[in-house]
């Protein structure tokens, strides 16, 4: 029995046959695993070696090099806030402060915040600075007022 669903296994096979080398399938396979399970777990890496012959060292190298692969169980809503030049100029820090406040309000009640916050490099949407992603959803011109409404949408 594989740890991966049938659907995922089909996708893996497709990627493994698609590129000039099997190794090139590692990045797309990891994206699929992360989409399905939220993060890349040690047992996934084990299984990729056992079931598909993708060397553990090769997979591990990729997982640790690229910042968008997660190796810990994530919170339901991950906020990636651009803290690069333009977003900083346009007030990113103030908005992030607001997000931290919302997150802290959970902790104050002894709850775990459903949000996590991470500063990321330029998201390539600087005409809409400050910019952020919540999971895969993009938000532009998020000032400290607008961000409250957005977080409420996610249940804050």
């Amino acid at each position: 029995m594989s740890v991966f669903s049938e659907k995922l296994q089909d996708k893996f096979k497709h990627y493994l046959a698609r590129y000039e080398t099997r190794r090139s399938a590692i990045l797309p396979i990891l994206h699929e695993i992360q989409d399905e399970y939220g993060w890349i777990q040690p047992e996934h890496i084990e299984s990729l070696e056992k079931e598909y012959g993708l060397a553990k060292v090769h997979v591990q190298e990729v997982v640790s090099f690229y910042s968008m692969y997660r190796t810990e169980k994530p919170r339901p809503y991950r906020i990636y806030f651009c803290d690069n030049i333009v977003c900083t100029l346009m007030g990113a820090e103030k908005t992030m402060e607001k997000i931290r406040k919302v997150m802290k309000s959970y902790e104050d009640k002894g709850l775990e915040s459903p949000f996590s916050l991470e500063g990321v490099p330029c998201l390539g949407v600087c005409d809409g600075a400050p910019a952020m992603l919540v999971n895969k959803e993009r938000y532009l011109r998020v000032d400290s007022e607008k961000v409250e409404e957005i977080l409420m949408k996610y249940g804050a």
């Binding site: 030049i85 333009v86 490099p121 330029c122 390539g124 949407v125 600087c126 005409d127």
Partner: peptide, 11 residues
Amino acid sequence: DEGEPGTFKDR
């Protein structure tokens, strides 16, 4: 890849 901070033209 459009990674150069400030750039959003290829998008």
